[in-house]
Design a protein around this nucleic acid. Structure first.
Lengths: 199, 199
DNA sequence: TCATAACCTGAAGGGTTATTCAGATTATAG
DNA sequence: CTATAATCTGAATAACCCTTCAGGTTATGA
């Protein structure tokens, strides 16, 4: 499943493995997956061309490894934050806020996840379907707790993902937004989500 | 601005130009921009390799030409539909419905537009900023007409784009949704947008 | 200390692709 | 009908890139 990735065992090996990952995340962000060559990676990482193949059989397996890392990291970060607040509404708010903040602090992750649509469509579908399913669990609880109208949870999960993703996108494109701004921004977003847009 | 695209003048030339466009849209959809080669295009179109360069200096200029076409077509389609209904709320609803229906009927467009993020980031930014500005005009009218709360129109335009894009995405990924379903789906979405999610 | 496994190198082979161009064909204005 | 512009062809070139591999270095357990 890890596509024949070879995990190094020694200290030197681990350091090399790590620099490959870090260099590649940076290159994928700046140039995109397809424009990034193995030679780009090994040159930027300061290693020989053959060293790459010691750990990864090809570029795709490296991409999948990085995507997997981000998935776990995002979900873990959100889950921890959400667990720390009380009330369904507050939890949903914290989830969206954490997602947007994560995007700001890891702008690379955003690009790399979306790009999966143009690398392997199935990866993209799995990612968002998995994310939606997680969302639905929380939404169902919100309904059970009487804090939310009896909505179609699957639909609402896509709506909320769309909102977070595009608001995150806006913040990323604008650039230079700091964390305080994000708090206010998310308050506005949640107000809109809570009470609706139209009179 | 059109990147040196040469528009043919004769009937034969126009037919060749057209088949290049149509073949390429199909290939970009199926394989993505980067995996599609000029040889793929000319072979699928049934023309000689050199013929491509009669009209386009390279693959990127062809991509930009196609992206531009979709932009105009989407905006025109939405504008016409929106003009045909009365009331700001009904107009917003019709706009979202038309967008999602357009995505279903032209699944190619969706892929090609999003892919701009991985071909030329500036194209992507221009596209969504332009779309947001258009949206804001309608939203401002909604507020003036007293049909909408006094919201941040720029923020709401990104929220609405996020909702349309991800609901459209969901429909596309699920596949097999017909137009009647979409009407009901959009009714649900608009209900949520109108009255909010939380109690 | 030394045998062994892990790690590293970069030149070279082999495949793929973009682009050119000399020459051929077709359409049409006059 | 004919001169001319537009259109078309596909083999050839040159650039690029992935991947291998024979040979070298480094770290470590015993």
């Amino acid at each position: 499943m890890l596509d024949e990735v070879k995990i190094p065992t020694t200290r030197n090996g681990k350091a090399t493995f790590k620099i490959i990952i870090e260099t590649t995340i940076d290159l994928f962000y700046k140039q995109g997956y397809h424009k990034t060559t193995i030679a780009n990676i090994t040159n930027s990482a300061g290693i020989g061309a053959g060293t790459f193949y010691l750990y990864f059989p090809n570029k795709l397996s490296l991409y999948k490894y990085i995507l997997n890392q981000f998935q776990h990291d995002i979900r873990k970060t959100i889950a921890e934050k959400v667990a720390s607040v009380d009330g369904r509404f507050e939890k949903e708010k914290e989830g969206i806020k954490t997602f947007i903040k994560y995007a700001i602090q890891n702008p690379h992750s955003y690009n790399i996840i979306w790009e999966s649509l143009y690398i392997d469509k199935q990866l993209f579908m799995d990612y968002y379907e998995g994310f939606a399913k997680r969302y639905e669990i929380g939404l169902t609880k919100s309904i059970d707790d009487g804090e939310m109208h009896n909505v179609d949870t699957e639909l609402v999960s896509y709506i909320l993902m769309g909102v977070s993703n595009f608001v995150g996108l806006k913040v990323l494109l604008d650039l230079g937004s700091n964390n305080e701004d994000v708090d206010k921004l998310v308050d506005q977003v949640m107000n809109i989500i809570k009470t609706g847009i139209f009179k």
